[in-house]
Amino acid sequence: CETCDRYISGRVLEAGGKHYHPTCARCVRCHQMFTEGEEMYLTGSEVWHPICKQAAR
Rank of each mutant, 00 (worst) to 15 (best):
G37L: 08
A56K: 11
Y7K: 12
P50V: 12
R11S: 10
R29F: 05
G44W: 04
Q32K: 14
R6K: 15
M40D: 03
E36T: 07
G17N: 11
H19Q: 11
R29N: 07
P50L: 11
D5R: 12
Q54T: 10
C1G: 02
V28F: 14
W48T: 13
L13C: 09
G10L: 00
R11H: 05
T43S: 12
R11V: 06
C30W: 00
S45K: 04
Q32C: 08
F34V: 07
C52Q: 01
R26F: 08
Y41I: 11
W48L: 13
Y7Q: 13
K18G: 03
E14N: 09
P50Q: 12
K53I: 06
G44Y: 04
I51Y: 08
T43R: 06
H21Q: 00
T43L: 07
P22N: 05
D5P: 00
T3G: 07
V12A: 14
E36L: 06
F34D: 04
H31N: 07
H19E: 03
L42Q: 10
R6G: 03
T23K: 08
V47Y: 08
A25Q: 10
K53H: 12
A55R: 08
G44C: 09
C30M: 01
A55C: 01
V28L: 07
A56N: 13
M40R: 11
H49T: 01
C4Q: 00
C30E: 03
T43K: 10
C30G: 01
T43A: 06
D5F: 05
H21K: 00
H49V: 00
R6L: 05
A55P: 11
R26P: 13
A56C: 09
E2W: 07
V12L: 08
D5Y: 15
K53A: 09
Y7D: 13
A25S: 08
V47W: 14
R6Q: 12
I8P: 03
H49Q: 01
M33G: 14
A55S: 09
H49W: 00
A25V: 15
C52F: 01
C27D: 00
Q54P: 12
E46Q: 06
R29W: 07
C4P: 00
V47I: 10
I51N: 14
G17R: 03
C24Y: 00
I8Q: 03
M40Y: 15
C27E: 01
E38Y: 03
P22K: 08
Y7H: 15
A55M: 10
H49K: 04
E2P: 01
I8T: 03
C52L: 01
R26Q: 14
K53W: 03
V12T: 13
G37D: 15
A56F: 13
C30N: 02
A15E: 04
C1D: 14
G44M: 13
E36A: 11
K53C: 09
K18M: 06
T43D: 09
P50T: 13
M33K: 14
S45H: 03
C4H: 00
C24G: 02
I51C: 04
W48K: 13
Y20L: 09
